[in-house]
Every structure is written in C-alpha cells, then in structure tokens.
C-alpha cells in the first residue's frame, strides 16, 4: 500500500464521520411526525406521539408506538424495510424501494421563526 491509499481512505472516512456527526446532532424529536410518500407523492403525515398503525396502499404496514415508527409488514421480496430499525430522529427514514415507499421523520413544528429582522 502506498501513502496515497491511506490518504484516500482517511479522507473518505472523515467525510463520512462529519456527515454522521451532523445527522446525530440534529437531535431527537419528541413530538415529531412521520411523513409517508409513495412514488414521490405525499401519502400522509402521522404524529409520532400517537400510537397507530398505518396501511400504505396495501403494500406496506407502518406501526407507530412509543414515539418511534417501524415498518411492520411489506409485500416486497427483500424485506429490507421490515428489518430496518425503528426511526424517531428528524431526518431518519425507512425506504422500501420495490414499492417506492419512503417513510421519513420530519419536525413536528413547521420551521418556526423567532422573528424576522428587516
């Protein structure tokens, strides 16, 4: 291995670490919402603070409990979304590619501004 190999590897890992750090510091959303979209279009938005089961077009079933959301069932062959861990942080998502279903956690409060200085 040459020196440049190490530099390349380290640079990529550092970039990944910085993005990871950024994702984790955006914090937990206690009263967040999950936004469900199918094929790029919005399917619905559901509160994380309320335990419920959401049926998505009969192809996927999303379960929200204890402030987290997880995919309980999907009719796709790979079952990647079902095995995905539960999501609760803003920006986290569960994606079912075969059914083009995206479940992502969004902030409960719609970008509130403290004030605007003109």
């Amino acid at each position: 291995m040459k020196k440049n190999d190490w530099i390349l590897a380290v640079v990529i890992v550092v970039i990944a670490a910085v993005i990871l750090l950024f994702q984790f510091t955006r914090g937990n959303s206690g009263s967040g919402e999950v936004s469900v979209s199918v094929d790029g279009g919005v399917f619905g938005t559901y509160s994380l603070s309320e335990d419920q089961t959401v049926d998505i077009n009969g192809t996927n079933r999303l379960v929200i409990e204890n402030g987290t959301a997880r995919m309980e069932w999907a009719d796709c062959p790979d079952q990647i979304c079902v095995e995905h861990r539960a999501v609760s942080r803003v920006g986290e998502s569960i994606i079912c590619l075969p059914n083009q279903v995206v479940v992502s956690v969004v902030s409960g409060e719609e970008a509130e501004l403290d004030g605007v200085v003109r």
């Binding site: 590897a9 970039i15 990944a16 994702q23 790029g40 920006g91 986290e92 590619l97 083009q100």
Partner: peptide, 19 residues
C-alpha cells in the same frame, strides 16, 4: 427511483462500507 433526497441518509454508512 424514489424521487427523494432522504435516501442520502445512508451516504456516510455507505462511504465507510465502500472503504
């Protein structure tokens, strides 16, 4: 394919996995 940038959430993990 899914018309969303949310998939980008996997980027750091995939970068490290690629290395």
């Amino acid at each position: 394919a899914v018309e969303t940038y949310q998939v980008g959430y996997y980027l750091p993990v995939l970068l490290i996995a690629g290395v």
